[in-house]
Design a protein around this nucleic acid. Structure first.
Length: 615
RNA sequence: GGCUCUGUAGCUCAACUGGAUAGAGUACCUGACUACGGAUCAGGAGGUUGGAGGUUCGAACCCUCCCAGAGUCACCA
């Protein structure tokens, strides 16, 4: 079946040439869906032709309209409002289209395109449990992966686990000092929370130690020497905290020597590290399972943090990097407005970029991917600009396929989330809260009395996660979003459950239908406005997915499924399906409902949201 | 201070990438079928798109300058 939009654009090009002797490329013909207040399906904007035609827009629109109705059988009629040519497509075109796709179990998806893309997301530190920020990251990454798969890519989902460094050593040290041999099992604590508890323990003891030091002679001495003129005492000690940790703190000293011991392969340190990380992984696994996400490959920082030195050699050979007087190595990116960037310390040890250069190269060797997408918060925009610029200069084969899916951080109605101030929303708590809310709600509604307890629990989980996920996914990634826990459990209006409800209604109708074998749908005569609206939306579905893939923007799909559900609810309210006036109408509406259900289910799947059959 | 991003109804978000009278949800008010699921539907009210200029047939969107907020500018990650 020919794509009606392209057909119109092509014919407009021909028409413009025939009428005004001007070339105008089909792709540049501006075409939109017609606004509701006017009659029509698609609207061609004719202003761009006024110069060549040397006529007023109304005249051009009228002439083009006549030309199109004459030349294109699918176009039934037209009307002109100012410079806008509104076209009405034949109902039969839409009916044929609908019957076509209602047989197609893959409508919306594209065949494999032979390209491979890697999507990196989540990438947690192993010293504390996952929080709301991770949830946005995980959902965006997962959804992007699904969307890329739907448009034909082979997708490799990976996460980097930041399992080494000073942070985990803090948890380790605190456990050694204050743990008394406790384990997640002995305390009946979710294991990642257990480890996180000791991280907090460390911070609290450190805070106390720092506080005491501030009162000491040494502390006072430093304060009087280094305080800036206009600085308050609080500001000074806030600023100085890092230096204190590195130069004076006993706890800092101990944590660092634990890190050194680990780096030197000290048996005890490594054993403890393995144990505690093991706890964290099993905790993460539970959360990932709740969220319904999986990975194809894990990269552990402990195994990759030394990578990148080879690439530094190559960079030096290629003249992309140079050695400074003190022996450190850097790259000059001032031309790209990115300033100079250190690649290697003067003692020869590597930095964050060095690691990332190395792992990018490694991944290419492992998977031979054409593209790599990094889902990382926007605080790292600069880092990725630098990384990509460097990889480009190093002439890595995948350098043109790199994309940083940068997303805004989440704020709470009360302000920013800060782990130091304990205002972070924990992922597990949040999920539990939404599930609780849906459970109450479901009991009130009492619609699930017929299903088994297991099934009921599963449905409640699906509805709860739909609420949470959709709430996050409907917002454009780039935008900082405000997360109001109260609104995130809403089940009405522009929400995940609202969309699920449209799907559930369809399933309910289909269950009640006795299933006549022969369909009279093609005999259906005139499309109602609500029906046509739905068909036009279904028609746009594949393009919506492709746009979402092109722009790495799942919110696009979220807006689409919401609108589709909304229009279905309206249609459902206005028209009877099973007791329609004619068999033709009934069968047509059944086919329409099935097609809508398919699109809703696929669209939500692309967002990582499951659809229940009842709720 | 330099660079980047954001600013749209009281609140949370859209706007097909320059198209018609800027749309949804929420909160508030008013209604709806003895009906296939009321987690629904319809209506009302709510806007100088942060401000000022400019570009053009047309600007929330592009340009310039301001205002406000955020991020970032390490031999940290």
């Amino acid at each position: 079946m020919t794509n009606i939009i392209q057909l119109i654009q092509n014919q407009v090009t021909k028409g413009v040439k025939a009428l005004y002797q001007t070339e105008f490329s089909a792709a540049d013909v501006p075409i939109n869906t017609t606004r509701k207040e006017f009659e029509g399906d698609y609207t061609v904007v004719v202003f761009p032709f006024t110069k060549a035609a040397r006529k007023g827009p109304e005249a051009i629109a009228a002439e083009l309209g006549e030309y199109l109705v004459r030349e294109v059988p699918e176009i039934d009629r037209f009307n002109v409002v100012k410079g806008f040519l509104n076209l009405v497509i034949q109902d039969t075109y839409w009916k044929d289209f609908l019957l076509d796709i209602s047989q197609d179990g893959h409508y919306g998806q594209q065949p494999p395109n032979g390209q491979k893309v890697m999507v990196e997301f989540s990438s947690p530190n192993t010293n504390k449990p996952l929080h709301l920020g991770h949830i946005r990251n995980i959902l965006l990454g997962w959804s992007t992966a699904q969307i890329l798969e739907a448009v034909g890519y082979e997708v490799v989902k990976v996460q980097v686990i930041n399992d080494r460094g000073i942070a985990i050593c803090k948890s380790m040290l605190a456990w050694q000092k204050y743990g008394n041999g406790a384990t997640p099992a002995s305390t009946v604590t979710k294991p990642d929370h257990f480890v996180g508890f000791y991280y907090v323990q460390f911070e609290q003891h450190f805070k106390q130690e720092y506080h005491d030091w501030q009162q000491s002679a040494e502390g006072q001495d430093v304060y009087t020497k280094l305080r800036k003129a206009e600085e308050t005492t609080d500001d000074f000690f806030k600023r100085y905290k890092n230096t204190y940790f590195n130069e004076y703190s006993q706890l800092g000293q101990e944590a660092r020597s634990l890190l050194l011991a680990w780096e030197a392969g000290d048996e005890q340190a490594v054993a403890l590290w393995k144990t505690m990380n093991g706890w964290v992984y099993s905790g993460f696994e539970t959360t990932y399972h709740e969220l319904g996400v999986t990975f194809d490959q894990l990269y552990y920082e402990s195994e990759t943090y030394l990578l990148g030195k080879e690439i530094v050699e190559q960079g030096l050979a290629k003249g992309v990097f140079y050695t400074c007087e003190d022996g450190s190595i850097e790259a000059d990116l001032t031309e790209a407005k990115l300033d100079k960037k250190k690649i290697l310390r003067s003692d020869g040890t590597s930095l964050y970029v060095t690691q990332d250069l190395g792992t990018a190269h490694q991944r290419y060797k492992d998977f031979g991917v054409d593209k790599m997408v990094y889902v990382v918060a926007d605080e790292q925009n600069y880092h990725f600009q630098v990384l990509f610029e460097l990889l480009k200069r190093l002439e890595e084969p995948y350098a043109d396929g790199l994309y940083h899916l940068s997303y805004g951080m989440i704020d709470l109605p009360t302000g920013k989330m800060k782990s130091r101030e304990g205002t972070v929303v924990d992922a597990d708590d949040l999920i539990a809260e939404v599930v609780q809310e849906v459970t109450y709600n479901s009991e009130e509604r009492d619609t699930l009395s017929e299903v088994s307890e297991d099934e009921k629990a599963e449905i409640i989980h699906q509805v709860a996660l739909a609420a949470l996920k959709f709430f996050i996914m409907k917002v454009h990634p780039q935008k900082r979003m405000i997360f109001d826990p109260k609104e995130s459990v809403d089940l009405q209006g522009q929400t995940g459950p609202y969309i699920q409800n449209a799907y559930v209604r369809i399933q309910s109708v289909l269950r009640k239908w006795d299933g006549t074998a022969t369909s009279q749908a093609s005999a259906y005569q005139q499309l109602a406005a609500e029906e046509k609206e739905l068909i036009l939306q279904l028609f746009a579905f594949p393009e919506v997915i492709q746009e979402a893939a092109k722009n790495y923007d799942p919110s696009n799909v979220a807006q689409f499924v919401y609108n589709l559900a909304k229009n279905y609810h309206r249609f459902y309210h206005e028209h009877s399906i099973l007791s329609a006036d004619t068999e033709a109408a009934r069968d047509f509406r059944l086919a329409l409902s099935q097609a809508v259900a398919h699109a809703l289910k696929l669209g939500m799947q692309l967002l990582g949201i499951e659809m229940p059959n009842r709720m």
